[in-house]
Design a protein around this nucleic acid. Structure first.
Lengths: 202, 202, 202, 202
DNA sequence: ATGTAAGCGAGACGGTACGTCGTGTCTTGCT
DNA sequence: AGCAAGACACGACGTACCGTCTCGCTTACAT
């Protein structure tokens, strides 16, 4: 996926190259690095070398290695964002959460996601990129689906939809980030049931 | 703090100093730095300078600046661990979660906690320190309280207590780490009610 | 010294400075240190500080503090190399050796030279710098002068010119390095006479 | 030759040990290190570890690692010091110089001697140890032999015996220290002849 | 089509931090 | 009393990044 500088159509390294080409090479190299060696290894130095690109260029386009990492990750893993609405809220939630959990587990997204959220705690650029490109859109999507259900009477009128979202996705993140043991896909239905019906006896 | 730190004042900085004295100075300086300037500023270099301690010593006792930060933080925020058991599960959960949320908000723990959990995603030493000294004990405490409630029939027999914990604390962490907007203490009762009774109509 | 050092005065220390300017500052500071405080004091740390230069830069250009010391010394004491040929071998040798001895004594070269040769025994970089820039060229010059004399019949045909060189300059170095008592200029004629006519009765 | 701390007669490492035993272990370990890995490797740290001795002890008895190295070397290579007097000055000089050259070459003394003389240029303790234990006694011995020869008329009355010594031994040291190419034993007779009869035509 | 300027590669420099090693000093505990 | 063990301050080394800057070149765009 990432192409070595040498193989770059035989051109001498100097002179101006189309911005698109440069950006593509950078994102490819950065994505490779992130998946292969983790966020710590994703330094401007290394990306520049692997992408056959000048470090100057990286500084021009990205404010920090973390920001580059975030963008590289989004460019790679356009995740499935559309939220199904089959009318069956429980089924839809299970579908969506299971897709989320499986995306983490099966596509190797666990480490990059954890590392990026981790970096966001310290690097405002990463935080912004993460929020704008990922967290907020997903949250809004879920909220919208829940709002529809609430209007249809499938959720209590006084239910706090934000809290529901926090409980569902927060439970997954909690294990990933705080406990270090990712959420298992097989538990998703129980998670949804707990969110819908609670843990107390009826 | 140390039993023979007394006669030491006039001496030059060379030679051996009691370990306890040094450790205390380091943890104090590290804690200050963490709270004042954040985790990024907590480097061995700076801690050494502020604590009047040799950098060598830091390397001897802590594997990474992050690990030192974690320990410094624990040394400072020991408390808040005992889980009440008044017999009223809902009230106890609210008490405990509210204490957690307030600890984050009112004692300035928000940033350090977020940064430490963030660093744990990348630095295994921080991860270990965090798990052993914080996450796991707290989790166990909560689980134990829920187990009692379950035995008393106040929670469904088939409730998954781990999931309940993930939903309650995970919701708080979710806002803090993923959304960047800390959980508000006034929402705690609703959070607990959602966990106990769910969002679906009865 | 550099062609565009002019407009640079007001700028902050960051960014690139002309290599020549930096090198000059480094060599000046290193030479000062070497002469003033000796080779032990010539550390990268101190040179960097005194030259207003980054330590990184020193590592980039010199493999070891010793190597830097050697170069700094050569940059300062270029001269004294041309070997006279007046036709009078004895006089020429005396001239040259006396210049050597006086250079050591009068220009404060004794200590640096001794220290550099000393360091060369342990630091291959110093050894190489010393050989290439100093010892070998000088030796070759002397040998050449002796070769001419030998061709003119002023030295025995079977004389070993290398040995003659070793005896003349070696005697000086012997006192300096092994005995610690520099050779006195007034003894130079006797030294040359001994080399030419030996110590045995005719 | 050097004995590991573990094998040291089964004693626990603590408590007082006879000084002689400690000194012997130290000198053995230091000598090994010097010959095996060179002077740079002979640090107090390493000697202490290899000799099963406390670093404190080394500081008590030796002012610097160099001084220890020097003493360790002398303890090991009690060199043949007695100067023969067969009546034949030329033969005696050849014998003695050849022994010197061969000692350097055949017994691996080249590197340690060069390194010690090198260190002496910078470390006054090494310089003193070297002078007192080696250079001066040897010089005196040679001078004495030459003085006898001079009294017997085998050297000119006006010959400067110090210069003769400087020329003979200085030639060897010159190659070793300044040129880096040790003197060859087969050249010794020519060296002596040059010293006795000079390089000029009779 | 041609000149100009925008943008790139290369790479040096200042700076901060890390991790390591060595020295000299000091304390403690054992023998 | 003397030694081993070992902690501490200090200073230096070597490395890795980051952010900044200069230079030379090439292509893209505007004229």
């Amino acid at each position: 996926m990432s192409e070595n500088a040498a193989g770059r159509s035989g051109r001498p390294g100097r002179g101006r190259r189309p911005a698109a080409e440069v950006r593509a090479a950078v994102l490819a190299a950065a994505g490779d690095l992130l998946l292969r060696d983790g966020l710590r290894a994703l330094t401007f130095d290394r990306v520049a070398k692997e992408a056959g690109v000048s470090r100057t260029t990286l500084h021009r386009w990205w404010p920090s290695p973390g920001a580059l990492a975030a963008e590289a990750y989004f460019a790679r893993s356009r995740p499935v964002l559309d939220f199904p609405d089959t009318g069956d809220l429980r089924a839809d939630l299970i579908t969506q959460l299971r897709a989320f959990v499986r995306w983490l587990k099966d596509e190797g997204a666990e480490r990059p996601v954890a590392e990026l959220v981790g970096a966001a705690q310290t690097d405002p650029d990463v935080a912004r990129a993460w929020s704008e490109n990922y967290a907020l859109p997903r949250r809004e999507l879920a909220r919208e689906r829940l709002r529809v259900a609430q209007r249809q009477g499938r959720l209590r009128a006084d239910a706090d939809l934000d809290i529901v979202v926090d409980q569902l996705w927060g439970a997954c993140y909690h294990r990933l980030l705080v406990l270090g043991t990712p959420f298992d896909a097989s538990l998703v239905p129980r998670l949804v049931d707990h969110a819908l019906h609670g843990a107390a006896p009826r």
